[in-house]
């Protein structure tokens, strides 16, 4: 008769029921947690080579008792739209039986050398014995198979290594090449303002600061040939990356993403950070 309340309605209603708890399931509504120390081994600088071992190091806990952990690796090539690809992207998942209140362990999977290159994510999902499911946890990595495009940014010099300091209303001039012997399908460049808690500022009204897609068919002047893209050739005033004004005494942060895909469906992504003050 635990927690079984009855309101006596002016004595009119008889007691409707009075049963004992059948399954003495604890009244547990606390969700299990995937600890933030969960990480990937074998991924260096966000990158792993096909044919290698991906190690997922996880730490999960619950107040009373864990039940299952599901790990799901799949591609994130085009948002999450799972569009049509020339090759086969890598997919892997497993369900791990758990018990106890804390589990810290590692599980590994071999990525075949034929897997398509590009950005992937690892999703982790955990439940406890009472059926509470914890918040999902995602880890991202870039898979390289040797035949994905090569992005070589020569200017700004420290692109992708640290924050690049820039002035308001400056123009970001990229130099260098993207090359691929299998021909370049397209080059995508996006610059987004970073928000306080978020990768993208919601103050931008949803429009990235800059978003362009270059293909040899539409922008032949940017390509030396079907296999080489020249960043320095972006000189058309409409395609220049112009930074906005920033109120004196304040600063803004921007995230630059360069995504190059080849005709086989291999993808390479490079990212950089800008600090505008």
């Amino acid at each position: 008769m635990k927690n079984f309340r009855i309101i006596i309605l002016l004595g009119l209603f008889a007691l409707a029921s009075c049963n004992k708890d059948e399954d003495a399931a604890p009244q547990d509504t606390t969700r299990p947690v995937i600890n933030s120390s969960t990480h990937l081994h074998g991924v260096i600088g966000g990158k792993i080579n096909a044919g290698n071992k991906l190690e997922i190091h996880y730490k999960v806990s619950d107040n009373l008792g864990l039940k299952e952990l599901k790990i799901d690796v799949h591609n994130n090539f085009d948002g999450h739209s799972h569009g049509r690809l020339a090759g086969t992207p890598y997919e892997w998942d497993t369900i791990i039986r758990l018990s106890g209140t804390l589990r810290e362990d590692e599980i590994e999977t071999w990525i075949p050398s034929t897997a398509l290159a590009g950005p992937y994510h690892v999703g982790l999902f955990v439940t406890d014995a009472a059926g509470n499911q914890g918040n999902s946890f995602y880890l991202d990595f870039n898979l390289s198979n040797g035949s994905e495009p090569v992005i070589n940014i020569t200017a700004p010099a420290n692109f992708g290594l640290g924050e690049i300091d820039m002035k308001p209303l400056d123009t970001l001039r990229l130099a260098g090449t993207a090359t691929d012997p299998d021909q370049i399908e397209k080059v995508k460049i996006e610059v987004e303002e970073e928000g306080e808690h978020m990768r993208i500022s919601s103050a931008t009204d949803g429009e990235p600061l800059y978003k362009r897609e270059f293909k040899i068919s539409t922008h032949p002047s940017l390509f030396t040939d079907a296999n080489t893209f020249q960043f320095a050739n972006i000189i058309n005033p409409g395609d220049l990356i112009k930074l906005p004004s920033v109120a004196p005494g304040t600063s803004k942060h921007f995230h630059v993403k360069i995504i190059v895909s080849d005709k086989l469906g291999n993808v390479r992504m490079r990212e950089g950070e800008l600090h505008v003050e």
Binding site: K67, E68, K70, D72, D93, T94, I95, G123, F125, T127, D128, A129, A130, G131, N132, Q133, S136
Partner: peptide, 24 residues
């Protein structure tokens, strides 16, 4: 609907395959 704590899967010829679902 009672949560089971189990992720959806199918068994085919003795092998277990997880179904694409982020939910239990």
């Amino acid at each position: 609907q009672r949560p089971t704590g189990l992720f959806p899967r199918v068994e085919i010829d003795g092998a277990l395959y997880a179904l694409p679902s982020t939910s239990q």
